[in-house]
């Protein structure tokens, strides 16, 4: 084969590879955009007027009018404030309870050596429990104690359901830390509390933060308990979204603007946690 044809053959192979890559890229992007489309369209429609939003269209003259209208509605703020309370306090308390517990489960010497595993398993099985299983007693208690009209009742339920998730995720991050550090710290006279706050938490910082963000997303989106255990003054954003059509009617632009406000924080937080999400949720299970 002469030199020239060899170069030509190489070139056609390279071209074929290039074409394959271009097609593959187009396919992947096409699917991704189609998949994301409902969210994208919701995001766009929030910048339409009601008249513009009646008929589906992607190109239009954007306006902030609808957002101004939605944000001037005081009830929206109330739902937003309630949701923020649940997310901040609920996530905070879940971490406060879950992080020390997972530390004790990973590095602690409990009475029986097998206790660590048993308690861990107990937390995991709690994740399997669907909220319907607890709704009825909680509902009757909350009505008697008038907790329906305070945010604390719902918050405690969220803590109960999300502490096990914190334990599960943080457990896998703590398990990555070498146990010798803590033995050395122990010999140096470092108390357990110091070992937790000075060594374990700083070392597993990113993992703990992403566990917190994931729990925040879960609480922000939680509907079943939020819907059934709250009254009008304490209801959260998912409840607002579920009532939207009956209370505000069929206003596509308003609906889109409100859902964008309800959905965007969770998507952004979720994107931030994606790496830790896989690791935290799968590590124990994949290896086990």
């Amino acid at each position: 084969m002469s030199e020239r044809t060899l170069v030509q053959v190489q070139r056609t192979i390279r071209m074929r590879h290039l074409w394959k890559k271009v097609l593959m890229t187009a396919l992947v992007y096409g699917i991704a955009i189609a998949y994301f489309f409902p969210i994208l369209y919701m995001f766009l429609s929030g910048f339409k007027t009601e008249q513009q939003a009646v008929m589906p269209a992607i190109f239009f003259k954007p306006t902030l009018e609808t957002y101004r209208k939605v944000l001037s509605d005081p009830t929206m703020y109330q739902y937003l404030r309630n949701s923020l309370f649940q997310v901040l306090v609920g996530t905070g308390v879940s971490l406060l309870l879950g992080v020390p517990a997972s530390f004790a489960l990973v590095f602690g010497r409990l009475k029986h050596p097998e206790s660590n595993g048993k308690f861990y398993l107990w937390f995991i099985t709690t994740i399997l429990l669907p909220p319907v299983a607890v709704l009825i007693p909680l509902f009757t208690w909350y009505q008697q104690l008038n907790l329906i009209n305070t945010p604390y009742g719902l918050m405690m339920a969220y803590v109960g359901f999300h502490t096990p998730i914190v334990v599960w995720m943080v457990h896998s991050f703590f398990s990555d830390l070498p146990g010798e550090i803590f033995e050395a710290a122990e010999i140096d006279g470092c108390s357990k509390l110091q070992q937790l706050t000075r060594i374990a938490i700083p070392l597993a910082r990113t993992g703990i933060i992403s566990a917190g963000l994931l729990v925040a997303v879960f609480i922000w989106n939680e509907f079943f308990l939020g819907f059934n255990l709250t009254g009008n003054p304490t209801a959260t954003l998912p409840v607002y979204m579920s009532r939207f059509r009956e209370q505000q009617g069929m206003f596509v632009a308003q609906l889109s603007a409100s859902s964008t406000i309800a959905v965007l924080p969770a998507i952004i937080l979720g994107w931030m946690t994606q790496k830790a999400l896989v690791k935290g949720l799968t590590m124990g299970a994949v290896k086990g």
Binding site: M24, F36, L237, S242
Partner: peptide, 30 residues
């Protein structure tokens, strides 16, 4: 693929959308 992370991130989006919002959005706009 160039920028495959963008595609991955876009496709992850729906997982974090609250179910009531996605229900209402699909029902009215789709």
């Amino acid at each position: 693929i160039p920028g495959v992370n963008i595609a991955r991130t876009l496709m992850l989006g729906p997982f974090f959308v609250m179910s009531t919002a996605s229900g209402v959005i699909w029902k009215t706009t789709i």
